[in-house]
Design a protein around this nucleic acid. Structure first.
Lengths: 234, 234
DNA sequence: TCAGGGAAGATTGTATGGAATACGGGCGAT
DNA sequence: ATCGCCCGTATTCCATACAATCTTCCCTGA
């Protein structure tokens, strides 16, 4: 429902552990650099250490955590440089996917249009529901990628972008940026509808670059702030 | 030495298991679709099932194997469509990386030139050492990606390409293709040396597309061949 | 006062046993 | 004869026990 690609291994305890820990990281409850203790997590979740270890391994593979031999696993930290790299790749891959989607007659333009319109509606309200907006936005971008005809493209982008950073992007936009972002969405739909791959690719690139610009401004603002030890509370 | 990015978790048994099983898959000793039994592998490798399970989990994360709940893990199988998707992404990412490398003054052109020359030398011999050639080629492409200034680019490409398919590509080239491939390498070096990003990107794209073309021919030739059960022998 | 060593505690890494689950063969019913 | 059910076997999945390793802190000695 939310994003997809949740790696539902089909087990029980392992998935519970994986989802729980992942959610804690993405929500920010577990800050960057925080240690992920096997025992602690196992007790919290009411399972043994084995599935917790397995879940941690997957998080490391996802790039959300880092493994330090004989020391443990800690939540990954993201430098501005990391974010820059990630956005570069995202722009490259997503704009390419959008171009492919424009050439694909099976692309569901109606759905894209509906998503874009609903997002616009939300932004016009007095107190926009950014959570819902983010969800629709993810849906919009996913739909485009899935329409590219390259299944791997979706998973690769998902593995790169790893939303701990992108979360709540919209809340940082000022009114002008928000309106521009919505305009981008509609223009993307028009370009795809027209089957113009180059137009679609270009406007998607602009869309993402604009987002990155806003993100950068936020990063510069909230920079050092002293070192946190990770855990939000005990 | 070989490729890099081996995920050296720093443990002992787990790494042994991971490397061993990975090698068996990449060498073809374990064919696509073969079951990876925990007990069997543990006995073979002289470790317990726990590190084997951990290794299997990593292989699944790498995309080299697939997990079927309560059934086990089996070696991933690649359809022609998969290979097509993979090559599309590879072309996109590598050509972009090459363009960036051309713009990066720190790119080690001397090393690239040396690698290209040594490869050419090998191909001019009576019985080319394709293993060595592949190694040098990997080195060439990795060097370019690392010079792009985007560290993630290297790991992303590595995670996508997963050499079980690309292995022995050169052995499939005919003489003309082999010579063209070598010429491409030298031209790439020249383009990077000249700092011409568009030239570099274009020739790299041609280089990879040509390789994909040869690969396709091979795939069509050796298509169905009856279902193998995996294990080469018992 | 400060540097060095060493032991205790904590945490990860590995091994193994028991519970749960899925598959395959045989038997019986229709 | 074929379909469906049941049970035995094999294998994964989870729990727990043990071993190895790292960290910390105190104690000793100069």
């Amino acid at each position: 429902m939310s994003t997809r690609q949740e790696t539902p291994s089909g087990n029980l305890s392992t998935d519970v552990a994986y989802q729980s820990i992942r959610a804690k990281i993405l929500s920010g409850e577990l800050a960057g650099g925080a240690w992920l203790r096997e025992n602690e997590l196992a007790n919290q979740l009411g399972v043994s250490r084995t599935p917790v270890r397995e879940a941690l391994g997957r998080l490391v593979a996802d790039g959300l955590a880092r493994h330090e031999p004989n020391r443990g696993v800690r939540v990954e930290e993201w430098t501005p440089r990391d974010l820059n790299e990630i956005y570069d790749l995202r722009v490259l891959l997503e704009s390419h996917g959008t171009a492919m989607a424009a050439l694909n007659p099976a692309t569901d333009v109606v759905l894209l249009d509906k998503l874009a319109s609903e997002m616009t509606l939300i932004t016009e309200q007095r107190h926009p529901d950014f959570g819902r907006l983010t969800e629709l936005n993810n849906n919009f971008h996913s739909t485009l990628l899935e329409s590219s005809g390259n299944e791997r493209l979706t998973t690769v982008v998902a593995s790169i972008v790893q939303v701990p950073l992108v979360r709540q992007t919209f809340a940082r936009y000022n009114q002008a940026e928000l309106e521009r972002s919505m305009a981008h969405h509609h223009e993307i739909v028009r370009a795809v509808e027209a089957g113009d791959a180059q137009w679609a690719e270009a406007i998607m690139r602009a869309h993402l670059r604009a987002g990155w610009s806003a993100m950068q401004r936020f990063l510069i603002a909230s920079r050092p702030k002293g070192r946190t030890d990770g855990q939000a509370d005990a």
